[in-house]
């Protein structure tokens, strides 16, 4: 144990030293190699000065470029290549993996489930987030309420899975229920259920976990946006005789529409990548499979890199529209700023 702590500490020190070494060292070297002295000819000074300013950005950027290339750009290309090969990546089989996926029942099930996640989770998270933001901003204990709703954001998907498996826990009908959901159901007079084994219901219950986590995110962002609405527009509407509900839907919502969209897409990205929750809760059993988990199964359990890669590419294609939209927004922001 002590050894591990020491190892961790020394590794932190090592990482920091490495970074300092690179950034300080490279810049020092640059300033050293292309140093200027007053004794040099004016032109030589100028040439060295400009050379330094031209080289320095790449010193700053080099590590980032390395990471982008090795961990993102190369994998995109390589994964696409692998998706055209067989299970061990040896034989080129054109789009056979894609046609397999198209015809595979589990894949279709997963894609269908992902689609359901894609609709349910962002909608519920954004909806609840907006509701809580609106309520909390009007009540004196709203700050505390927001903190509590926001708290799940900090918890890992695995931790959340344990928490919710406990909520959904099942005991036989003749025993006292220890899961709060079944306790509630039996209190209402219904028999307890093995929730995670009922198709469709189980998928929904998994989505509830992600909603539970993401609502806090939506709430924080939307709360900030709501506060950013100029108070004058609301007061003007009030003077015009609009009721609070009408003001909310016709004055406030339109002004935060972009933010709602941003929240929605951000949650969508999380949903498309969802893996941990399904892996920990049901591992895809009883028709709860999703693409993220299916990809993991094919790649690391079944050892078929071709099919795994194919599923990864499908996920990439699904996020591509959001990627393009993001780039457009960034470019627009770049243009004005």
């Amino acid at each position: 144990m002590i050894g591990q702590v020491l190892y961790a500490a020394s590794m932190v020190a090592f990482a920091v030293a490495l970074l300092f070494g690179y950034f300080w060292g490279a810049n020092w070297l640059l300033d050293r190699m292309l140093a200027t002295t007053p004794a040099m000819a004016g032109e030589a000074i100028t040439r060295r000065d400009s050379l330094r300013t031209r080289i320095r950005p790449w010193i700053f950027l080099a590590p980032t470029l390395f990471f982008l290339a090795v961990f993102l750009i190369y994998p995109i290309i390589e994964t696409f290549r692998l998706s055209l090969f067989d299970r061990l990546g040896q034989n080129f089989i054109w789009f056979a993996n894609y046609s397999w996926a198209w015809n595979d029942a589990t894949f279709r099930q997963s894609a269908f489930n992902n689609l359901a996640w894609l609709i349910v989770v962002p909608a519920l998270s954004t909806g609840f987030g907006l509701l809580i933001a609106v309520l909390a901003d009007r009540l004196w204990w709203g700050g505390l309420a927001k903190t509590l709703v926001f708290m799940p954001m900090a918890i890992s998907f695995v931790g959340a899975a344990v928490i919710w498996r406990f909520v959904y826990a099942y005991r036989g009908p003749d025993m006292a229920q220890i899961g709060i959901l079944n306790a509630f159901v039996t209190w209402l007079g219904y028999p307890p259920q093995v929730w995670l084994q009922i198709p469709l219901v189980n998928s929904f219950l998994l989505m509830v976990i992600l909603v539970w986590i993401q609502t806090g995110f939506a709430m924080v962002i939307l709360s900030a946006a709501l506060r950013g609405i100029p108070q004058e527009t609301i007061e003007a509407a009030r003077i015009d005789g609009a009721g609070e509900v009408r003001i909310f839907f016709t004055i406030m919502i339109p002004q935060i529409a972009t933010t709602i969209l941003v929240v929605w897409t951000t949650i969508t990205i999380h949903v498309l990548k969802v893996f941990d929750i399904v892996y920990a809760m049901t591992n895809g059993e009883n028709q709860t499979q999703v693409l993220g988990n299916l990809m993991y199964r094919w790649t690391f359990i079944a050892g078929d890199s071709g099919r795994g890669a194919t599923i990864a590419i499908v996920i990439l294609l699904a996020v591509t529209p959001i990627m393009i939209w993001n780039i457009r927004r960034a470019r627009a922001a770049e243009g004005t700023g």
Binding site: G42, I45, T46, D49
Partner: peptide
């Protein structure tokens, strides 16, 4: 008396 087109601001 010195052309400064390419000279750094600090110089």
């Amino acid at each position: 008396g010195r052309v400064v087109n390419d000279v750094a601001p600090s110089k």
